[in-house]
Design a binder for these strands. Structure first.
Lengths: 192, 192
DNA sequence: GTATCAACAGACCGACAGTCGGTTTGTCAA
DNA sequence: TTGACAAACCGACTGTCGGTCTGTTGATAC
């Protein structure tokens, strides 16, 4: 049971890779299953053997994208002990990671739609929101009862900055401005 | 040319009303044109005579919803001269208006998807973002160069709070908490 | 009366996501 | 070696949906 499993995993991985490209270029709605099948040179049956539906394929793509972003974030935070310093570094890493068009299209634009706001935030809860809340709690400058709400607002604010940055004509200068603004925002929220 | 025009306007209005109900209950994707036609007892030809497509029908629905929300906001701001006081009042009105399921589904959930983030923010720009920016500029506590970005973040933050509130089990207490948090957020952003 | 045109009617079309009965192929026990 | 088994794969087919197209109707203008 090795050649079989390997082949299956290879097909699955190939589909995810191809779908990542198409989803990024044309968006979720603009990418037909047909197009994925043609590009990947895989049959309909094979795709539906590995994924129960189009949204499941998207979820698999999302997973790989999320993991990359998370890894970038983890690297940025490495060695930082102060919760606010870590939070700040993570925010900057997040803003920087939106330079990647995959992150913009898949993570920022399509994910909330395809998954629905609720599931989207649940995913964020597991991945990043939880860490933000922990940092805010450790820091203590936000009243405990308000940590949850402020964490959401902070996340939403960072996403908004990221979206604005993603639309900017001059990415370099916009990125600098975005990072400065994000820092300012954090300072103000935490009452520095 | 009066009976004819009246009849047309009546059909159009009826379609918007029916579509508003269905979009609210089942969302944009979950509402088929078929369903709208059946419920409204209007023919396909009639609908496509008044609207070039499904998204145009949605845009018409969105317009009426937006106008209601805007009217609520205008009423809340009435008589207030201090820009920050007006901003605060408008935020509270906005949070309160999400008690309406139409606002939640059509305005918060579906609109960004159907219109796309860009057009969605352009609409917001005309309707509310412009006013937020004006208020922040008049107040002056946010550096002029950063007003645009902060206005976006403020709007996104309020939307996030609204979404959280919309999902809450106990709406009454959650609303009180949400308004307190929104006030706190404003204070911190403006460095009060 | 008749020409005109907005309003409406509904058969029809192509695209698409998803299904289903079958076929191939690697694995493993006897 | 072989035969049972199951994972992997195949592709014709289906139902639904948004949108189009060729009319028909009835109020209005002349």
């Amino acid at each position: 049971m090795n050649k079989k499993i390997d082949r299956g995993q290879a097909t699955r991985g190939h589909l995810v890779a191809v779908a990542t490209g198409l989803f990024t270029e044309h968006g979720y709605d603009g990418t037909s299953i047909e197009a994925v099948l043609r590009t990947a040179e895989v049959s309909r049956g094979a795709l539906y053997h590995h994924f129960p539906g189009k949204d499941a394929l998207f979820a698999a793509v999302l997973d790989t994208v999320y993991e990359r972003v998370e890894a970038d974030g983890a690297r940025a935070v490495e060695g930082l002990t102060d919760p606010v310093a870590a939070l700040r570094a993570a925010c900057m890493a997040w803003i920087r990671s939106t330079a990647d068009p995959v992150v913009r299209q898949v993570l920022l634009i399509d994910a909330p739609t395809v998954l629905g706001w609720q599931r989207w935030r649940e995913l964020d809860e597991q991945r990043t929101l939880g860490k933000i809340k922990a940092a805010l709690r450790r820091d203590g400058r936000i009243p405990a009862a308000r940590v949850d709400l402020f964490a959401h607002v902070l996340l939403a604010g960072m996403n908004e900055i990221a979206m604005l940055l993603a639309r900017a004509d001059d990415h370099r200068s916009a990125a600098a401005e975005a990072e400065a603004a994000a820092g300012d925002l954090l300072d103000r929220l935490l009452g520095a």
